[in-house]
Design a protein around this nucleic acid. Sequence first.
RNA 1: GGGCGGGUCACCUAGAGGCUGGGUGGUGGACUGCAGAUCCACAUACGCGGGUUCAAAUCCCGCCCCGCCCUCCA
Length: 490
Amino acid sequence: MLRIYNTLTRKKEPFIPVEQGIVRMYVCGITTYSDAHIGHARTYVAFDIIRRYLEYKGYKVTYVQNITDIDDKIINAAAEKNMDALEYSSYYAKRCLEDLEKLGVRPADMYPKASEHIDDMIEMVKKLVDRGYAYVSEGDVYFSVEKFRDYGKLSGQDMEQIKAGARIMPGEKKKKPEDFALWKAAKPGEPKWHSPWGEGRPGWHIECSAMSSKYLGMPFDLHGGGQDLIFPHHENEIAQAEASEGKRFVNYWLHAGLLKIRGEKMSKSIGNIINVRDALSMWDAESLRFFFASVHYRSPPDFSEEAMRNAENAVRRIRIAKEKLEMAAGEDDKFNEKGLDEVEKEYLNNVKKFIRNFEVAMDDDFNTPKAIETIFDFVKDTNILFMKKENPSPPLCRYALNTFLKIANVLTLLQEEEKKVDVEALKKIASGYGVEEQGSWEEMLERLLEIRRNARKEKNYALADEIRAKLKEIGIEIEDRGEETIWRIS
RNA sequence: GGGCGGGUCACCUAGAGGCUGGGUGGUGGACUGCAGAUCCACAUACGCGGGUUCAAAUCCCGCCCCGCCCUCCA
């Protein structure tokens, strides 16, 4: 039974979807005025894993993630560069999604943009005005917080606290400091749309209420985002949606812990923001994903070079175990348990234990660090199998490999990824040993390894070690296993 | 000031009142021409001070420190 921590109740609750077998989830996306950073990445990897686990459990998941392509920051940033705000934001929207995809985050089913749903938002604002929850003030429309009895239920604040923190900024025309804008009258030069209240643009919060309910209905199952969005963004989303529709908006609210860098918060003022594309130039995508998965989604991960080194090494161990299984696996995974010997039977039990433990871990509010423990248990079991047995049952290995991949994939690990080899560099090295540039690089590498094999036979270890060192420099690691030599791209 | 979540072995992270997690790194051993990989073993732990309990990292109280939110924020 899957249990999920719900910010709304501050408790782990059994997960029961609105419609059996189906999960509808919405995650607040990026405001696209600059490149995606690893804080974004942390959040979207976390929800990617949640989505994958739900699918693993057999749910049909609809995953919607919005793109905020119209807001103050975008308008200001675009103005500085003398660009059209929407053009500017669509450029970054594309880049951000590309970066996340390169990171190996599975795309959402839908990325609705705020600018393309103005009508839906106007519709919702109208309802709020009609129902008396909102008021018009000189072309602006504000939500009257005191009218919505449940305001504060998500962030756990009472109205007194909320009022204490509220302010009226210059230019705002609201009646009460705690009220928030649903619609803003256009200022000169800003992007604007027609509305019953004059030309203007929507407030930030309304897009998520309008788009999520449009595509997922009400109530829908899961709504996620970074912890920083609990107040006011998600609080306001609830107010807008529930006040306008008169029914519950979302059943489970999930919030990801915000990434820290070397113990500090990541912020512009500290100047420690790391973009996804920069991170990808320093570490491979799988190591980054492992790093995120190794911290529970509600905890704030502490990013550092050393933490990434840890992750890289851990990932290597997982990959090596997978390779062993790949080499031993047969075409199909049908085996007769009676045909297995003691060692294989024990391994089969371990595989089954692996599945059970993994599910127990993930059922407990998506406990990915615990799930990773089960991965390492399995890695060890696999290593022991190959230590005890030269050629274990190919169908058994296929079964174990399939299980391994299925589970690892939930944690975004062992995804198929192209491994890059610097072919030019390889050619250079190979030609240095008289290997002709012919055929694929794999064939070239084979011929080079043949030379090394001969060198080893002749006990010319200096030459053998030299070749090994040079290959390592370009990311090809080789390992001697008796007479055999295997290689991998690191 | 208010709300929320934390402080666990050198580092990163889980954690149920009792049976001393996992990864990375370290040390020793097995294997190996060496390296690597792998296995085995070992070491290093629960912010501080009290309390409850036969038993507390886990519950309670106080203190210190850190992070997030309190209308920009994934």
